[in-house]
Design a protein around this nucleic acid. Structure first.
Lengths: 153, 153
DNA sequence: TTACATGCAAACTGTTTGCAAATAT
DNA sequence: ATATTTGCAAACAGTTTGCATGTAA
């Protein structure tokens, strides 16, 4: 991990600027009880403006840097967790060390490529898991997760 | 994590002592190209003498301490990885931060209790995952893993 | 007697936290 | 005005590594 921080500069983009993308996210954040700050809006845009994505905190931080958005890594972590708690993201556990955040919040499953650590959605609608025994006493099923681990052929 | 180390003392148990449990593990280790050292044998016994188990490195290290077996945490990690490479263990990824090692090396699935971080085997024979799309280009399926995440009711 | 295994400390990675400064309402 | 959010540094957890010492063959 590379830890490069820049001094925070003045706020150059008005958070309340009237453009359709912002309007959209401002509403979603407000609904989640999150103030639509410059950082959160920028991260929301990076996360959600392209289709379904699987990102680590570091990935998103790097994207923010590349897009000249000044956000600290700590804020990226905070934001990802807040978005997850708000139901805007899901977290996916694929491999020991790092956590992935998935912009697809609908039930679905994943291919996981061990070689490059990449996650790919499996459309959930077609998949069925049969023969599951009932959960142990006192607990109930929260979610069934299928991970198909891949090797290159 | 607690890091308590003791000075290594003299070897009190002969590795080659003739008892059926040792004989068994000595052979298995040899077959895997691993020298049957005091530490490896002790860990093997802790791992395999009771039924199926899901352990972290820390868990096993604690058990070793409790059993008055002197092993460093680093050696526990090494040993777990070597055993996994040799097919004596499987590693299971359930949650971001820690890795579990599973003494059940036959294909099967897991319940995972988020509250207490405990894994429970699901007998694999009954479970079937239907409707999987073919893996992406150039890759093939290595393993299909089902994790049923539990909540207490 | 030599190649391998161990123990420890220190490094490393991903993540979280404490707190002062900045910002949203 | 005040409650929230941010950035940074430092802490933290789990894991890995380098190297001197110990042990198996």
């Amino acid at each position: 991990m590379t830890r490069i921080y820049r001094k925070s500069g003045p706020n150059t983009m008005s958070v309340t600027a009237r453009n359709p993308i912002n309007e959209n996210f401002v509403a979603r954040l407000r609904q989640a009880g999150l103030r639509p700050t410059r950082q959160r809006l920028a991260l929301a845009r990076l996360l959600f403006q392209h289709g379904d994505r699987h990102l680590t905190a570091e990935d998103l931080h790097a994207e923010a840097q590349a897009a000249r958005v000044r956000v600290s890594l700590a804020t990226v972590y905070n934001t990802l967790h807040q978005f997850t708690a708000a139901g805007l993201l899901r977290s996916v556990t694929a491999e020991g060390s790092k956590s992935y955040f998935d912009t697809n919040t609908v039930d679905h499953h994943h291919f996981y490529c061990e070689e490059d650590g990449r996650l790919v959605d499996i459309d959930g609608s077609g998949i069925r898991v049969a023969g599951l025994p009932p959960p142990p006493n006192g607990s109930k099923v929260e979610r069934v997760e299928v991970i198909v681990r891949l090797k290159s052929k």
